[in-house]
Structures are given as structure tokens and as C-alpha cells.
């Protein structure tokens, strides 16, 4: 017969697991607008993860070995979470005026999977601590887990790897430039005037070679365009493809320029928005960590 410590451990593990998931969900609002139902889905997933996690150590101690096999089951389940998010975001992305891009979607999907594992691990540790010690040990572990997940959930953002400043939009004939970076060829005067009146140009200057390689990634640039457009609004519809925000690379220096025609023409806000764009895990490059990369950089 399972005793009271078992249930206490389980309950503490479940509650802390779900609470930690909820604290991580809040951060997702900007990256992935979490509708009431999106939140519900992920809290339900967190609940399952927490149950499985918190039950593991007490079950082992009570010699209920079958309970532990659920851990393996859970891992398979959470891989599906990733697949589910990926498919849904990819379907929605086709109807976005500025698409997020595959890299960004993969990043978000991976985050959802990883966070479920974090919940499971938290519940496992909290459940174990409560079972062997008492509820205070459990809460102490929960607090430490909260701090660690806080560190794990956040990645770098563009503002930390590059300087973002205003660039001047100009035309040479039909060719659109921001400072000296060429963007595209645009036909009619009407559209050129719209760009000169309403357009904003930004230059993103990488701090080092790592940042330069990261900014070269097309997926990372699509993510910047998507986030900037989402925050400032976009002067574009399906039949005005020429107002799609673009990011182009200066081949000589690795600087990246961006041109966008927002609804809210405010360069300060645009720069802030770009600085807050996350550096995608899959786009992050670090050539400077190798000897070859360091030698090539000087």
C-alpha cells in the first residue's frame, strides 16, 4: 500500500511542475501568440509531464518498477508535441504576410519539446526531494529548478551580438539602397515615392565573426523581418509584394541592412524591436571557438 509521503511527493512535484511550465509560457507570447487554447494545451502537456516526473523516484523507492517505464512513453509523447507545433506553425506561416521561416518554426517547436522535459525533470527532482526529505526540501529544489529554468529558457538576442542603427534609404535609378547596401530594383515612381516617404532603413553591424556568421543565416534574417513587421505593422497586402521587408547582406563587411515599410514610422521602436529578436539556436554559429576561425578573423 502506498503511503502518505508518496502522495505528498507526487502532489508537490505536479504542482511545481505545472507552475514552472506556466512561468515559462508567459515568455512565449511574443514569439508565438499563445491563444487561450494554446496555453491550455501546453498546461495539459505539462501536467502529464509533471505526473510522470514526480511519480518516478517515489515509485522506484516503493519498488513499483513499472511506473518508471512511463518515462520512456513520455519522451515519445513529447516528440509529438514538437511535431504538432511544427506542423501547425508551418501551416499558419503560409498565410502570413511576412513568413516566420523554417528556422524560426523549428526553433519554437524545439523550445516546446525542451520545456516539457524541463518540467519532467523538475517534477522528478522535487518529487524525489519531498519523498526522501520533506516538503520543505521539495520546495527548495523547486526554487532552485525555477532559477535554472529561468536561465535555460532565455537565449541571446540580436542586441547582444550586433549594433543596430538607422540607415538612410535612397534610390540610384530604380535601385533601392540603405546606406551603401543594395536591396532591389523597383519599377514605378509611385512605389519609389512610397518607400522614400514611409520606409525605414536599418543597419545591423555584427560585433564579431560569430555574429557575422549568425547574421548570414537566411532563417535568422527572416525571423528579424517577421518580428519587426509583427511589432510595427506592415504597409503591405497580398497584391503589393514590393513592400515585403527585406534584409540584405553587405558582402564586404558582413553587415546586414534591412528595409521595411511599417504602419508606425518610428525608427527608435524599430531598432528596439530588432534588438529584441532572439538569436535562433539553429542559426547560431561560433567560428571563433576554433583555431582556424580565430586565425581567419585577423
Amino acid at each position: 500500500m502506498l503511503g502518505a509521503p508518496f502522495f505528498q511527493a507526487m502532489l508537490t512535484g505536479i504542482v511545481t511542475g505545472v507552475l514552472i511550465r506556466y512561468s515559462m509560457l508567459k515568455r512565449d507570447y511574443r514569439q508565438y501568440p499563445s491563444y487561450p487554447h494554446g496555453t491550455t494545451i501546453h498546461l495539459a502537456m505539462a501536467f502529464i509531464a509533471a505526473v510522470i516526473g514526480s511519480v518516478a523516484i517515489p515509485a522506484l523507492a516503493e519498488k513499483e518498477f513499472t511506473a518508471v517505464t512511463f518515462l520512456a512513453l513520455a519522451a515519445a509523447q513529447f516528440r509529438e508535441v514538437r511535431g504538432m507545433e511544427r506542423i501547425m506553425l508551418r501551416n499558419l506561416d503560409r498565410l502570413n504576410l511576412v513568413s516566420r521561416g523554417m528556422e524560426y518554426i523549428e526553433g519554437i517547436a524545439r523550445v516546446f519539446e525542451a520545456r516539457n522535459y524541463l518540467v519532467m525533470l523538475t517534477s522528478l527532482l522535487v518529487g524525489g526531494a519531498t519523498y526522501w526529505g520533506n516538503i520543505f526540501y521539495g520546495l527548495l529544489v523547486a526554487f532552485i529548478a525555477y532559477l535554472i529554468t529561468g536561465k535555460l529558457k532565455g537565449g541571446k538576442n540580436i542586441g547582444e551580438i550586433a549594433r543596430v542603427r538607422e540607415g538612410k534609404i535612397s534610390f540610384k535609378g530604380p535601385n533601392l539602397f540603405v546606406d551603401d547596401i543594395h536591396f532591389m530594383n523597383l519599377g514605378t515612381d509611385n512605389i519609389k515615392n512610397k518607400y522614400l516617404q514611409r520606409g525605414l532603413g536599418v543597419i545591423i553591424e555584427p560585433f564579431d565573426d560569430n555574429a557575422r556568421a549568425t547574421l548570414a543565416n537566411v532563417g535568422q534574417r527572416m525571423a528579424i523581418a517577421h518580428d519587426a513587421a509583427a511589432l510595427l505593422g506592415l504597409y503591405k497586402d497580398v497584391d503589393t509584394a514590393e513592400f515585403t521587408p527585406l534584409l540584405r547582406r553587405d558582402l564586404d563587411t558582413g553587415r546586414v541592412g534591412m528595409v521595411i515599410v511599417p504602419i508606425e514610422k518610428d525608427i527608435e521602436l524599430l531598432i528596439e524591436a530588432i534588438k529584441k529578436v532572439p538569436v535562433l539556436e539553429s542559426a547560431y554559429r561560433s567560428p571563433l571557438k576554433t583555431i582556424i576561425g580565430r586565425k581567419a578573423s585577423d
Binding site: 535609378g173 530594383n185 519599377g187 514605378t188 497584391d239 509584394a241 514590393e242
Partner: peptide, 29 residues
Amino acid sequence: QDKIATTLARITEGVVHDLENGIYIIVKH
């Protein structure tokens, strides 16, 4: 030329590009 180009671009959801020799092309990206 500008007028035709704009109309065609709207209809086809394409972008007008100027080849700078008196020719515009509409490109679907």
C-alpha cells in the same frame, strides 16, 4: 508604362522591376 505596370502588378501580385532601358518586367517572387 507606369500605369500598365502598376495594374498588372496588382493583378498578378508581382513586383515591377525596371531594366533601365525603357523596359519594365513583372516578376513573381
